[in-house]
Amino acid sequence: MSEKIFQEAFDAIVNGEADKATDAAKRGLDEGIDPLLLMDKGFIPGINKVGDLFETGRLFLPALIYSATAMEKATEIINAAIPVGKELVSAKILIGTVEGDVHDIGKTIVVALFKANGFEVMDLGRDVPIARFIDEAEKYGADIIGSSTLLTTTMVVQKELEQELKKAGLREKYKTIIGGAPVTQRWADRIGADAYAQDAGDGVKKVKKLMGK
């Protein structure tokens, strides 16, 4: 019986059907399936499949948003059923495209997948000054600051963000993660960022790792 529910959960996410996702979540819990198992065997494989399809051009942004929304709804239900202390990984992530760069399609995808995976996200949009990253992170109580850049000329702003956090004495307060087409793990190491995400799916994995889960 569990297998059938897992498949329904998987299908609901891949097809972007929020109603069916919430229904699968509720029925699964009613049948006594462990909420974490339901997540691991049904919903998470579904959203991973969505990520794979998107990254190879076989699923498009509107469909990704529907899938992400379905995942968010299911996650809310599952989270409410998880015993205290065993919650799914949670993080408050502040994200934006750095100043001087107006490319935000990639970041929009990252935000959708972050939300789908149960993270709280504040999206600052594009062309975000360093001071705003820091001010908003303080106000929001972020765990992680994520910065994106598409241009080789604006990559350096990610380095400046690291430096400004240090100057403000806040570097140890936050985990930082960087992404964008010209960015690599080597760049992350060089500027002192805590993590590098190759794409949206990798970003989810890295955030979970940063949060120690």
Binding site: T56, G57, L59, F60, L61, P62, A63, I105
Partner: peptide, 9 residues
């Protein structure tokens, strides 16, 4: 290398 489906349709 592939057309990004911002619209999709």
């Amino acid at each position: 290398e592939f057309v990004l489906g911002m619209h999709g349709d």
